[in-house]
Design a protein around this nucleic acid. Structure first.
Lengths: 243, 243
DNA sequence: CGTAATGTTGATGATTATCAAGCCACGTGG
DNA sequence: CCACGTGGCTTGATAATCATCAACATTACG
C-alpha cells in the first residue's frame, strides 16, 4: 500500500524543527508506505540491515534487546511522530529490534529516497542528526533513572516523560492520557521484575499524585509528581542549533 | 595554545570511517586548540551551550548527570579518539556535563569551523551523524547492562567493552590495558554503591577470568569473560553506511 | 462460558545499600 | 627520616530492597 504521509503527522514532525515550505513539500512527496502491526509484532528485527526508515503514526513501539537467557530490555519507547529508525540511515546495521507495544501504524520510506531528499535539502541532514542526538538525550536520562532512582521514582519519571512527549504529539491533554502498556512491558523497560513493578505502581498510586487504571493515566498533581520523580524536562526541549 | 591536531589522532579518527585525502587534509587544517585537564576537572558543565566540540587525545572522560541529592550517574565513558561532544554541534544545549576521570588532554575546535568544513565536505555531516548514532548504540548497551545484568557481569561487560575500544584506539594490546579509574567512579557508572562495587570486583577477580590490580587490567580468558558478561560486540563495529 | 492474558497477593531468600571502621599507599611538611 | 593527613580500598554488620515462586483474582475476548 502506497500513500502520502498524513498532513497531521507532517505538522507534528515539523513542530520541533520548523521545515521550510520547500522542505515540507519534498518530504511529504516521498513515496511513503503505510503498514499496520499487531500488538507485540516485530517491526524491525534485531541485527537487521535496514533499507528504510520508519515514522510511528499511531500506537506505541519500543527498541528492544534480547539476552541469551530470554530476558529482554526495552531501551526506548516511541510515541506517534517519532522517527524511530533514523540512525539506520547512517549505520549499516541496527543494534536493536523494534517491537509494537500496542496495535500501531507506521509510515516507511526507503533510505534511497531519504538520501536523495537530503542531497537536495542539506539542512535536513542536520535535522536528522539532531533527531538522533535527541534520542541520545532520552537514553542518557533513562540510564540515570535506572542507575540512581528507585523503582517508584523511575516509573513516576516515565509517566512525566510520556505526558510531555504525548502532549507534543497531540496525544495528551489536561494531565491525562491513554497508555495501553502492560506491567510486564513496564518491567522490561524499567529493569524490574513484573511483581515488583506491580508493587511499585501501587505505591505510586498510593501517593495520590496520579492514578493509573487500565490504560488511563491521570496526573492529579503535576508539580509534586515532577518533584517526586526528579523530572527535569530540559532534555526534552533540545532544539536544532541553526547556524 | 593553538596547534595542529596530532597526526596519530587523525589516523585514529580515520580508522572507522575512512576519510578521503581532501577530507583528511581539511580536517587536520582546522584551528584546533589543545587543552589539558586535571583528574576530576569539569571539561564541559551540565546544561552548557557549547560553541566548540572536543576530541579526547589522552586519558579518560565521562558524561555525567547530577541529581538533586548530590548523587551522580555517569552515562558514558570516552577513550582517546572519541569525539565526545559532537551532538553539541546539532543541539543548542548539552543535557549532560563532561568530567575528566583522569588527567587528560583534549583538542577543541569551534563549531563555526566544523560547520564550514561540513558545508565543503558533505560526507562529513553523515560521518558526524554516524558518530552520534554509534554513541547511541553504546548507551543502549549500557541500559541493557543496568537493567538486566547483575553487578559482576555489568563490570565484566565494561571491561570487555573498554578493551575493544582501547584496542581500536591503540591503548590496549594482548588482553591487557591501563584503566586508572577509581572504584567510586565505576560505582557511578554502574549505578551501584562503592561498597558493593568493591565486592563485585572481588567476585569478578575470583572467577580467574581477569585481574585488576591498581590501574592494570589483564584478561586471562577472553572467550570465557565474553561469555560470562554476555558481551556481544556487534554494537561496537557499526560502520557508516556509504550509499 | 471457557480460556488466556493481565493484574494482584503472600511468603521466602537473595541481593544490595548503608553505616562504621580499619587498612594501605602516597605525598607533604616538620 | 618520620609524623600525619588524605584518598582509595576493604571488611563486617545490619536493614532495606528486590527477585522468585506459587497461588489467586480479574479482565478481555472468542
Amino acid at each position: 500500500m502506497e500513500s502520502a504521509i498524513p498532513a497531521s503527522l507532517l505538522a507534528m514532525l515539523d513542530r520541533r524543527d520548523a521545515m521550510s515550505p520547500a522542505e515540507r513539500q519534498a518530504f511529504a512527496g516521498l513515496p511513503w508506505r503505510l503498514q499496520s502491526f499487531q500488538d507485540g509484532a516485530e517491526i524491525v528485527p534485531e541485527g537487521h540491515r535496514p533499507t528504510e526508515s520508519c515514522v510511528l503514526l499511531r500506537g506505541f513501539t519500543a527498541n528492544v534487546r534480547y539476552l541469551a537467557n530470554g530476558d529482554r530490555q526495552l531501551t526506548a519507547i516511541h510515541v506517534p511522530g517519532d522517527f524511530f529508525d533514523l540512525h539506520g540511515l547512517f549505520l549499516k546495521v541496527l543494534d536493536h529490534g523494534v517491537v509494537a507495544l500496542t496495535e500501531c501504524q507506521v509510515a516507511m520510506v526507503k533510505h534511497e529516497h531519504l538520501k536523495r531528499l537530503a542531497a537536495d535539502h542539506l539542512r535536513l541532514v542536520s535535522m536528522f542528526a539532531a533527531s538522533i542526538a535527541r534520542e541520545g538525550a532520552l537514553q542518557r536520562t533513562w540510564i540515570v533513572c535506572m542507575g540512581r532512582k528507585d523503582p517508584v521514582r523511575r516509573i513516576a519519571h516515565l509517566v512525566c516523560e510520556m505526558y510531555r512527549r504525548l502532549e507534543r504529539a497531540g496525544g495528551a491533554r489536561d494531565f491525562q492520557f491513554e497508555f495501553p502498556v502492560t506491567q510486564a512491558e513496564i518491567a522490561d523497560l524499567a529493569g524490574l521484575s513484573v511483581v515488583h513493578t506491580n508493587r511499585a505502581l501501587q505505591e505510586l498510586r498510593a501517593t495520590g499524585l496520579m492514578s493509573w487504571q487500565g490504560a488511563e493515566i491521570r496526573i492529579s498533581n503535576w508539580a509534586s509528581l515532577v518533584a517526586f520523580a526528579g523530572f527535569d524536562e530540559t532534555y526534552l526541549g533540545l532544539q536544532l542549533d541553526e547556524q
